[in-house]
Design a protein around this nucleic acid. Structure first.
Length: 699
DNA sequence: ATCGTGACTTAGGAGGTATCAG
DNA sequence: CTGATACCTCCTAAGTCACGAT
């Protein structure tokens, strides 16, 4: 039944503390193709249809809503220290997975004993991400459509049939032997960034208060900076230093000798010009916008697809990254460096020998053309900031990505079968005589319980200082033998991937606590917590426990199982669709919290808060007025003792009740005002409540 | 064991567009 | 109708993990 939610749940955003978790099943921020959008639209239409139903059951729904909120609140609280995953009855019939998932030559088919599409649809919510969902949803949508009596007969016959023929069911076909990714690959090569267009004469750059005409190369780099002038980046010392250093490399010797101080550079005129341009773009007529859209579509049509083994497949990023200033996340030592323009001479093309090899742009050559069918990429180049390789690969809707994705969830499903054993084992290992084993066991416990990432070592000074489990340092945790009435609490505070802060206070088992004390003995804050452990040791161990098991499988598994449990808990089969969507979003949010998926609050947040605050003030004023009125009405009634004044008292009392009553219905339309949750969100919720915003979460 | 590299997945932010409330 | 907000797509940085050389 969960399949119902899938097309909508692909990206869910909720807010945690001053940030937002974003999640669904783990890998869901990926690009969605147009077909997915169509499904979404379809679903949306459905909701609209269902709204009359909602109206009828308004009161009922509200009660249910409240109950659910309550339930979720309790659930959430337990989530602050993520729940121990309960031992579920192993519904293996439900999880009919291919036996040798690692390298099956053939996928399970509908007619297999152990596998049916009906079953598959159900567990997919746990075991799949976008690309695959799409396909399932597609067939679902079609079924629904064919049932829909409103569809004219002619449409019914023509359209869906055509679509059906076009949909390639790769998952019903045989897989290639291990290592081989394709047999035929043909594509048109990448789309390069448009060449630099020099600024019009009237746009000036000033140095030390005087107009200065820059050489084209220096001007181009200057425009990168000018475009970012409003961004906080440009105020950061490292950014400015890196930028200036790289900019100077692009200058003529004359410019170099003149421009010696970034602070004397005035980019404001340039910046204004770009702002005006972007404003003009917004103000473009419909026709002009349409023209741009058509041009983009043309580009997509020509370069956005490739042929892989007799099928036309969508390419994810067929455009080469344009030059610009590197924007690292967090405190990145290389922020502001110049990301140079990629030329055909930097490009390696990968395709079949017998395919039509894409020609390089006139007057240029490819760096290399290779024919490696053991990899999935079509184009690659080496980027100049970190020296890492960038690739052009296929869209998530492609067979090659879908298969990988499927395999990922199959591995997670296999983990489900042995996770209890593994948990028992690491608990045993907490007592091991070997330090290495103990560390491994505690780290694994964190990865499992808190869904931490593995934490590879990183080159110091090359990237922002972030850590994962294995790379945690002593300074990242605090041990509290007792905290807020709980025993053996570990306080985590570190920057993880993308420099997103992980902050959590978790009660742990005594043995873990004692071990941590031991690991921290005689160490400096900057020393590794797990000094005898790294990701390679950990993954080697996991590999022994289960084929294909690595640290990240725990994240997939725990995210999936959490979603499933939450859906079970929060959803009532009788709920209407909007209510189910709400439950889905909440379940999803629980996963986001578990995985520490966050996003910065929107820039408009401050403003909306101000708006709410002014509403609150107005409301408070009203309440105070009403109270005053009531007081005087009461006094009045005491003296007069007539019906009229008694009624007045009643009226005023009602007014107050209404004002107060609105606090008990803290629902608000915007997603981030979902009343069920979280620190700053709760603040908003309370504000909303005070404002009497009772527009209904789902209307 | 350690290191470097390559291939691939996961993730947040920017910015455009759709939708909704007032 | 308009401005605010929600939603979505694109972009690309930042992870994970395997493998081969030393």
């Amino acid at each position: 039944m969960w399949a119902l939610f899938l097309p909508l749940g692909v990206q869910c955003i909720g807010y945690v503390a001053s940030s937002v978790p974003k999640c669904t099943l783990l890998s869901c921020s990926e690009h969605k193709d147009s077909s997915e959008k169509k499904h979404k639209d379809k679903e949306k239409t459905k909701h609209k249809d269902g709204s009359s139903e909602k109206h009828k059951d308004k009161h009922k729904d509200k009660d249910k809503e409240k109950r659910k909120e309550e339930k979720f609140r309790t659930t959430f609280i337990s989530f602050c220290s993520p729940p121990r995953i309960k031992d579920e009855p192993d519904d293996d019939g439900f999880y009919a997975s291919p036996k040798e998932d690692s390298k099956p030559l053939k996928r399970p088919r509908e007619d297999d004993d152990t596998f049916s599409w009906e079953k598959r649809k159900e567990w997919n919510v746990v075991a799949c991400s976008n690309s695959f969902l799409l396909i399932l949803q597609d067939s679902k949508a079609k079924k629904a459509k064919s049932k829909d009596k409103k569809v004219p007969e002619a449409d019914k016959r023509k359209k869906p049939k055509k679509e059906e023929e076009q949909k390639w069911k790769w998952w019903e076909e045989e897989r290639y032997p291990e290592g081989i990714k394709w047999k035929f690959l043909e594509h048109k090569g990448p789309v390069f960034a448009p060449p630099y267009e020099p600024l019009p004469e009237n746009v000036k750059f000033y140095y030390d208060g005087k107009v200065m005409k820059l050489s084209t190369k220096a001007e181009e780099v200057a425009t990168f900076f000018a475009k970012m002038l409003d961004h906080e980046y440009t105020t950061k010392e490292i950014f400015r230093k890196n930028f200036f250093k790289d900019w100077r490399k692009e200058m003529t010797s004359e410019e170099k000798s003149t421009i010696t101080n970034l602070s004397k550079c005035d980019f404001t005129h340039m910046s204004q010009y770009f702002k005006a341009q972007s404003e003009a773009r917004k103000q473009m007529s419909k026709e002009e916008k349409q023209k741009i859209k058509e041009e983009n579509e043309r580009l997509l049509k020509e370069y956005g697809y490739c042929v892989m083994d007799n099928h036309k497949e969508r390419i994810a990023n067929f455009k080469i990254e344009p030059p610009g200033l590197f924007r690292g996340r967090g405190n990145h030592p290389k922020m502001g460096m110049l990301k140079r323009r990629i030329m055909p001479e930097d490009i390696i093309i990968n395709c079949s020998k017998d395919s039509k090899i894409p020609p390089p742009p006139p007057g240029h050559k490819w760096k290399e053309v290779r024919h490696d069918n053991k990899v999935t990429w079509l184009v690659s180049w080496t980027e100049n900031i970190q020296g890492s390789i960038k690739y052009i690969m296929l869209n998530p809707s492609s067979r090659i990505k879908g298969e990988k994705d499927w395999q990922k969830y199959e591995t997670a499903r296999r983990l489900k079968k042995c996770v209890d054993k593994i948990r028992n084992q690491y608990r045993e290992d907490w007592k091991s005589k070997e330090m290495k084993v103990r560390q491994r066991a505690v780290a694994l416990y964190f990865i499992d319980k808190l869904a931490l990432r593995a934490g590879n070592e990183k080159e110091e000074g090359e990237t922002a200082d972030t850590v994962g489990c294995c790379s945690l340092r002593v300074e990242h945790i605090k041990l509290h033998p007792e905290l807020d009435g709980q025993e053996y609490v570990v306080e985590f505070d570190f920057l993880g991937k993308d420099s997103i802060r992980y902050y959590n206070k978790v009660p742990v088992e005594k043995r873990v606590f004692k071990n941590l004390q031991l690991f921290m003995e005689n160490k400096q804050p900057e020393d590794d917590l797990f000094d005898r452990l790294n990701t390679s040791i950990l993954n080697k161990h996991l590999q022994d426990l289960m084929e294909g098991l690595t640290a990240k499988v725990f994240r997939t598994y725990n995210a999936s199982i959490t979603l499933q449990q939450q859906l079970k808990e929060l959803t009532n089969p009788d709920d209407n669709i909007p209510a189910k969507i709400l439950s889905y979003n909440r379940a999803n949010r629980a996963v986001a919290i578990l995985c520490n998926h966050q996003r910065a609050p929107p820039k408009t947040f401050e403003k909306s808060m101000m708006n709410l605050q002014s509403k609150i003030d107005a409301k408070k004023e009203q309440l105070a007025d009403a109270r005053r009125e009531l007081k005087s009405a009461k006094a009045d009634a005491k003296v007069r003792r007539d019906e009229k004044s008694k009624n007045k008292v009643m009226d005023q009392a009602c007014n107050i009740a209404i004002f107060k009553g609105s606090q008990e219905l803290p629902t608000c339309k915007c997603t981030f005002l979902d009343p069920a949750l979280l620190c700053w969100k709760l603040t908003v919720q309370m504000l909303c409540a005070l404002c009497g915003i009772v527009t209904g979460v789902l209307s």
